[in-house]
Design a protein around this nucleic acid. Sequence first.
DNA 1: CTCCCCATGTAACACGTTACATGATTTG
DNA 2: CAAATCATGTAACGTGTTACATGGGGAG
Lengths: 178, 178
Amino acid sequence: MSIKYAILGFLDWTPLTGYDLKKQFAASETFHWSGNNNQIYTALVQLYNEGLVSKEVQDQESGPSRKVYSITTEGREALRQWLLTPPELPQLRHPFLAQLAWAAQLTAVELDTLLSQYENEVYVKLRMAQEQAQRDTRQSPRRTPREELLWGQIGNYWVAFYQHELDWVRRLRAEVTE
Amino acid sequence: MSIKYAILGFLDWTPLTGYDLKKQFAASETFHWSGNNNQIYTALVQLYNEGLVSKEVQDQESGPSRKVYSITTEGREALRQWLLTPPELPQLRHPFLAQLAWAAQLTAVELDTLLSQYENEVYVKLRMAQEQAQRDTRQSPRRTPREELLWGQIGNYWVAFYQHELDWVRRLRAEVTE
DNA sequence: CTCCCCATGTAACACGTTACATGATTTG
DNA sequence: CAAATCATGTAACGTGTTACATGGGGAG
């Protein structure tokens, strides 16, 4: 469960509640746990039991009490250890390729419709990634130039990925049409 | 469970056993169900119950009896319907980006080591994808030029993906070093 | 009045990976 | 003699998604 380390990373930045973390995860594809209640709250409990985070309960007049989590010294050490572990390769799941694999039996029009739909969806995603990257760089209050560079290149990564995808499908569409 | 449609696709090509399918899946990243026993055999049972495939049991003198599955007319129809469904966007899971997000706290040497490890792993993957693509085109006994084109572009896709990844990490490494 | 935000959590389900279990035949 | 290949399947576990449940406060 690498979500634990992602959480430790955010908490190393500043103390946060489960709800805050949920928003952080939802905001970036890099932390792909799509704003997932289930995993975040259970991971926080586990991290707490392992002593990697501490919590401060703030009772509120209305609603459930906020639980603000902070990283502990042990947590910082665990995070650092994880940072040094060998990198994992990306996992790309691409059901559309499987669809295309058998799509030769479609008519020319049907196939082009499929490709054009895909092209549009990718285009929308690309725009979203671009806006996200801009938002990130504009307000980026990163701690060091190194961190700034890394976050910049990460945002960049997603833009480039969808751009690459778009180029690919456009080329394919052209080839299929002729 | 889109694995069912992937199976139907292969069976539309030629009758196969579960074991054959397992090898097919293992051979290509496009069908990302990593040669997964569990899902293949249960999916076949389900497809059979739904009447989308038929099976011929061949008793053997030794070992378990082979079950050769063929696609039925209903199966062909289901496959065609699936081919026309709106395309799904790719899902890219990239834990290394999450690692990088917090890697600014590492020393320059540690960070470069990490990036160089990653570069090597991606390079290996790229080479594997290239070989796979070559093998595919060389022996490709595809049914139509359209199918040939599509399979070619799919193999191509994986090569381009890892190439893109390699370029990205090399650029990043250069930027971090200076 | 409805919808969204805050804030916590649980439950059910779907999907994926690894390992286990059996056992003959072939290859190194 | 060990190992990989053929060929079937099951079990356990881990991860990920969606929906449910509760309930106050504010905005449109």
